[in-house]
Design a protein around this nucleic acid. Structure first.
Lengths: 153, 153
DNA sequence: CTCTGTGCAAACGGTTTGCAGCTCA
DNA sequence: TGAGCTGCAAACCGTTTGCACAGAG
């Protein structure tokens, strides 16, 4: 935890930004909720619990800054809200998501899985890939079980 | 063209919707710009050229209706605007996109490419896939050539 | 006549921006 | 002192909604 903060601090400094208390509070919330896919508003409310004086605009500006430095990834599942996802340490590729269309839960896939596909696309379409977004929409394990339970009623 | 309109008309009817002049004008714009990834506003302006009385709300409502009936797909490249993409005749899967981070152009990939990946995800994560979104961000062929030309200056 | 669909304008909600004040070198 | 950063409120902008009216069956 502390050493990840330290590393982020260095990343900011190397681009001549400061790790202000507000920025640190925001980063801490992101670290503590690494599995969730928080919206800016979510982050704001969580930061506010510990630092009540913070403003929503500051959170937005911090998230934008972190996105720019590729410390977080800004994602959009099509529900009209941007969500922010901390990049995994040393992850070469952006991870994938499984969005459940029943309960709305979002799971992550760390495995790359796209290596073959990317090779095909790069050679077949002459496209130099820099990043990707892959999201599957479907039914999560829990909802599948509940659906089956419903059927047996 | 005409028979695709006819087919869409039938799809609407089978869900007890009418193909009104406004809806037809909107669909025609989508058919005429199948390669572009138009925003609602884009569609509105194009429809307005031929049917100036149409309102923006009607275009939104039509696009929503077409999305519901899976005649178009609503996509989001993260620039804060929804774009609408006509489904290819009989396409089982939603196609993929190549977004150029230099010039902003968007190309489409019709090939599935994800069959293997989906099989892995379904069995490995117990997730029943219903749909997917795959977008690659990178440099298109044209911009790669221009970059190379720049280097040789 | 009824029900669906439409145009307009207002409302909405997430995000951005202008600005005055603050912090810390 | 000055550059960067913050909080607040207002502005923004894509999208949705309420409502009165039009049009087809």
């Amino acid at each position: 935890m502390e050493n990840r903060i330290e590393r982020i601090k260095k990343q900011l400094h190397s681009s001549s930004y400061k790790l202000t208390p507000q920025r640190e509070a925001t980063v801490r919330v992101l670290l503590e909720h690494e599995e969730d896919h928080l919206s800016a508003e979510d982050v704001y409310l969580l930061v506010k619990e510990k630092s009540p004086e913070i403003g929503l605009a500051t959170v937005y500006r911090t998230l934008e800054l972190l996105t720019e430095l590729k410390i977080v990834d800004k994602i959009n599942f099509g529900d009209g809200v941007s969500r922010y996802d901390l990049r995994k340490e040393g992850a070469a590729h952006f991870h994938h998501h499984l969005v459940c269309i029943d309960c709305g839960s979002v799971a992550e896939i760390e495995e790359d899985l796209l290596e073959d596909v990317e090779a095909i696309v790069e050679s077949g379409w002459n496209f130099k890939i820099k990043d990707h977004r892959l999201t599957f929409h479907g039914i999560c394990e829990k909802c599948q079980q509940e659906d089956r339970a419903d059927e047996n009623e």
